[in-house]
Simulated scan of single mutants.
Amino acid sequence: MSQSFTPADVAAHNSPDKGMYIIVDTAVYDVTKFVDEHPGGAKILKRVAGKDASKQFWKYHNESVLKKYAPKLKIGDVKEAAKL
């Protein structure tokens, strides 16, 4: 079962010791263990950890990358904040 995260939940996971989560579109990915495998280098993932990385992701990747890595890295989705 997929977990639901708030943007604040994701923001708390912004370093290797806390775990590194990113958001692409509405999906949340745990890239903590992938950081050393990332072809573009660890620095890029560390820079976007805890943030919505959709803009940066789509600039350099296509949908086939998500299909390849999502089963291993996707941990949930961002739930919408309550509207007051």
Results as ranks from 00 to 15, higher is better:
16 P>E: 06
63 E>V: 08
70 A>E: 12
28 V>E: 08
13 H>D: 01
82 A>N: 08
84 L>I: 03
44 I>N: 07
1 M>T: 08
54 S>M: 02
51 K>M: 14
51 K>D: 04
84 L>Q: 10
22 I>D: 08
54 S>N: 08
7 P>T: 09
53 A>Q: 06
23 I>F: 11
35 V>S: 14
56 Q>R: 06
37 E>R: 13
72 K>G: 00
6 T>G: 06
29 Y>I: 03
36 D>R: 11
4 S>C: 06
79 K>F: 04
78 V>L: 15
2 S>I: 08
37 E>I: 11
16 P>R: 05
60 Y>G: 01
82 A>T: 13
63 E>G: 12
21 Y>I: 03
79 K>P: 00
50 G>L: 06
72 K>I: 12
57 F>R: 01
29 Y>T: 05
59 K>E: 15
29 Y>L: 13
36 D>K: 14
76 G>Y: 10
7 P>V: 12
54 S>I: 03
48 V>H: 14
32 T>H: 09
12 A>N: 13
35 V>A: 15
60 Y>N: 13
33 K>W: 02
71 P>N: 11
15 S>L: 02
82 A>M: 12
70 A>M: 03
3 Q>F: 10
1 M>R: 08
68 K>G: 01
51 K>N: 10
81 A>I: 11
56 Q>A: 15
34 F>K: 03
52 D>M: 05
81 A>L: 15
1 M>Y: 08
69 Y>S: 02
72 K>L: 14
71 P>S: 11
43 K>E: 15
21 Y>N: 03
75 I>C: 06
74 K>S: 04
38 H>T: 05
39 P>E: 05
28 V>K: 05
22 I>N: 05
7 P>Y: 11
36 D>H: 12
71 P>I: 09
67 K>M: 08
43 K>T: 12
80 E>W: 01
23 I>C: 12
79 K>R: 15
40 G>Y: 09
81 A>Y: 07
71 P>H: 10
75 I>G: 10
51 K>H: 11
18 K>P: 00
55 K>H: 12
49 A>H: 09
49 A>P: 11
68 K>Y: 10
84 L>W: 02
8 A>W: 00
75 I>Q: 07
25 D>T: 15
6 T>I: 03
37 E>L: 12
70 A>Y: 03
76 G>S: 09
76 G>L: 08
18 K>T: 12
82 A>H: 07
57 F>P: 01
36 D>V: 09
73 L>E: 07
46 K>W: 00
48 V>C: 05
75 I>H: 05
25 D>C: 02
16 P>A: 09
10 V>D: 05
68 K>L: 14
11 A>G: 11
3 Q>C: 03
73 L>D: 04
27 A>P: 00
5 F>R: 03
80 E>I: 00
37 E>M: 10
10 V>C: 06
22 I>V: 15
28 V>T: 04
7 P>W: 05
17 D>P: 02
26 T>F: 05
20 M>E: 13
74 K>H: 02
40 G>A: 10
83 K>Y: 07
29 Y>A: 04
48 V>E: 06
12 A>I: 01
11 A>K: 13
17 D>Y: 09
